[in-house]
Design a protein around this nucleic acid. Sequence first.
DNA 1: GTCTATAGCTGGATAGAC
DNA 2: GTCTATCCAGCTATAGAC
Lengths: 207, 207
Amino acid sequence: MIKPRRGQPGNKADTRSALLDAAEALLLEEGYPAVTSRRVGERAGANSALIHYYFESMDGLFVELFRRGAERGLERQAAALQSPQPLWALWDVLHDHINTFRTVEFFALAHHRPAVQAEVVEYSARYRQQQLDVLTEVLAGYGLDAATWPPVTLILLLGSVSLLLLIEKGMGFDLGHAEMIAVVEREIRALEGDRFTAHPALARRPS
Amino acid sequence: MIKPRRGQPGNKADTRSALLDAAEALLLEEGYPAVTSRRVGERAGANSALIHYYFESMDGLFVELFRRGAERGLERQAAALQSPQPLWALWDVLHDHINTFRTVEFFALAHHRPAVQAEVVEYSARYRQQQLDVLTEVLAGYGLDAATWPPVTLILLLGSVSLLLLIEKGMGFDLGHAEMIAVVEREIRALEGDRFTAHPALARRPS
DNA sequence: GTCTATAGCTGGATAGAC
DNA sequence: GTCTATCCAGCTATAGAC
C-alpha cells in the first residue's frame, strides 16, 4: 500500500500510465480545471515536465485520456449489448454516474479544445453506431415498428434522459426523477420483460 | 453605432450593465473560461478593477450574470406556457440554442463554483415547477392519463432531448437528430394538434 | 527517463490617486 | 466611479544537468 515514486526499481516504464491515472482521478474528483500539469505530476508522484515528454502538451494528455476511457466504454457497451436483455443492460450502462461525469467533463472541455472536440465527436458516432447496429435487429425482434419508432430515437431517448438525470442529480436536484425512471423502466419492461438479474450497481453494493 | 466608452457623459451609471453584457457575450462566444476579469473589462470598455467594485469578485459577477439571464428565461417560459398551444411553445423555447448554450456553460461552471451551483439548482427548480403548474392542467385537459404519464415525465423528456440534441449539434454531430425531432413533434401533434403558427425562429428568419 | 530551474504569460485582487 | 500600478499566485512549456 506504499505509494511508489517514479524512478525506483520495479516501476520502470509505467510513468506514462501513472500520469494518465492521476489525470483521470483529478478529472473525476474536481473536474477538468483541476487537471493541470503541476497537479497531475504531483499526484502521479512524478515530475510535471514528464507530461511534455510523454504527451507533448496538455492537449495531448487530454486527448489520450479521453481515448483510453472511451475505448474502455465502448468495450463495456459492446458487452452490455450482447446481454440477453440489451435494453436493460444499455440502460444500466448509461445510468452509470462515473461514466456520465466523465462524459460531461469532456463535453465541456471539447468546447475549448478543438483537439478534444474532434475526438469526442468521433467516439460519439462510434457509440451510437454500435448501439444502432445491435438494437436495430433486437427491436425488430420485439415487434417494434421501425417506421413509428426508429431505433435511433429510442437510443437517443435513453441517452438524453440518463444524461440529464445524472447532471441534475450531481447538483443535488432531482425533481421528477423518480417518476421519470419509473416510466422508462416500465417501457423497457413492456418490450423486454422483467429484468432477469438485479441491477449490477445494486448487486455490487454491500448490503 | 459608435461604441461608447465609460466615463463619458450620457453613459452614466450603466457600467455595471456593460460589464454584465460583456461577460455574457464572452460566455456565449467562447465559453466561460474566456470570462476573465481583464477580458470583460476590456470588452466593456471599462477597467477590470471595476468588476470588483460592482461584484466583489468573479464569483459575484457569474452569479449576477446567471440570475439576470435566468429571470429573463423564466419570463419567456411563462409567456410561452400561456400560449394556446403550450406544448409547442415550450418545445420551441427549449429548442432555442442560445438559451441552451448558456445553460450548458453554467452547468459546467456550477461544477466548480459552489455559489453558482446553488443558483443553478434554485432556478432549475423554479423552471420545472413553473412548467408543472401549467402543464398539469393542460395535459389533463388533453385527456392524458397522469398515472401512466405523469406530467413531469413529459417535461423531463422534452427537456432532456432538446438538451442533448443541442449539445451534440454544437459539436457538429447529429446522427439520428432528424428522426428524433420528427418523433417528438409527432407526439406533440397527437396531443395538441397541428401548430397554429410557424416556428418563431423560422418566422423571424429573413427569407 | 527523470529531474531542477526558470522563462513568459495570464489570472484575481487590492491600494491609492484622481 | 474610474483609473493606474502592482502584488502574488498559478499555469504551460522548455533548456539543460544528471
